[in-house]
Design a protein around this nucleic acid. Structure first.
Lengths: 152, 152
DNA sequence: AGCTAGGGTTCGGAATCCGAACTCAAGGGG
DNA sequence: CCCCTTGAGTTCGGATTCCGAACCCTAGCT
């Protein structure tokens, strides 16, 4: 149990730790599904067509990591829900960035299967990497990387 | 060969396709390494401590997917480089979003191992999900999801 | 009493992953 | 000329992980 290939990330970098977690089969899909509103074991299982044992395991690590929270609803006949915690909701930019990229580079011919719009004004949803200081949009080339420690 | 668990993604959604690709062991790590400037087989191998056979395979699918391009440099004694294509460079927001999240939620005690700054003005790098229309910063709750087709 | 629903667990076989050793081609040094 | 090293992979047997299908348990329903 626990995050599967932590070893992968023992070079303490703030990309590699999440990457070890999210770069596990099913995890990203599971999160997407959670953001779409899925909450119950059975619903995840049928929506993603994942094997039940692996689903149990993935939900488990996500709960351990504090990204999902498992809570009972319906006290009378206990049933459980897996809901995104604040930590989990904070992954929204990751999923949106992924979607933007998918729209541009891997879009099936029929186009995306969902439209996303700002609830209050109807505008498109954008994801931007920008300088907090001057506001310029940044690409990898515009960014200087300064190692702070030996990165492994 | 080919993208490993495409089956996972056959519900044509622009998150699930990239998620199937990037949610494969090592792939995110490999991309992070590529953005840090690693280009050669040996360097990836020692930097990530990945098994050579799996590295061969991952580099292969990434090339197939057009995210990396394999090209010879040094014609005299042929050696190869794997470099990010435009499609690959476009994944920058995904990695940055991941890093932001890692900084906030999984940062090791010593803090991140790199600093990133806007090359020209020194400002911090930000990642934002915002409405293209009104500019408001958006969370999952502010976004309406409209299914366009049956999503599976 | 028997049936169904929700949420898992168990299990054997299939697919992946891992580390270590091996390959092959081309310089370089002596 | 012969041996050593480098870069970039392959190959292979054993260890992990994944998968599908079947099974389990509890409560309510009829």
């Amino acid at each position: 149990m626990g995050m599967a290939h932590v070893k992968v990330a023992d070079e303490l970098c703030t990309v590699s730790l999440p990457a070890a977690l999210l770069g596990e089969r099913w995890t990203l899909l599971l999160l997407r599904q959670a953001f779409l509103g899925t909450r119950r074991f059975e619903d995840f299982q049928t929506a993603m067509d994942i094997s039940r044992s692996v689903l149990t395991e993935r939900l488990g690590t996500l709960v351990e990591e504090g990204i999902l929270r498992r809570e009972a609803y319906k006290e009378v006949r206990t049933r459980y829900e897996y809901r995104l915690t604040e930590k989990g909701l904070d992954l929204y930019p990751v999923l949106m960035a992924l979607r933007k990229w998918g729209d541009k580079w891997m879009s099936p011919d029929e186009g995306p299967s969902f439209d996303l719009h700002h609830r209050s004004c109807g505008g498109d949803v954008g994801v931007h990497v920008a300088c907090e200081e001057c506001g310029a949009e940044l690409t990898a080339r515009d960014v200087r990387v300064t190692p702070l420690r030996d990165p492994r």
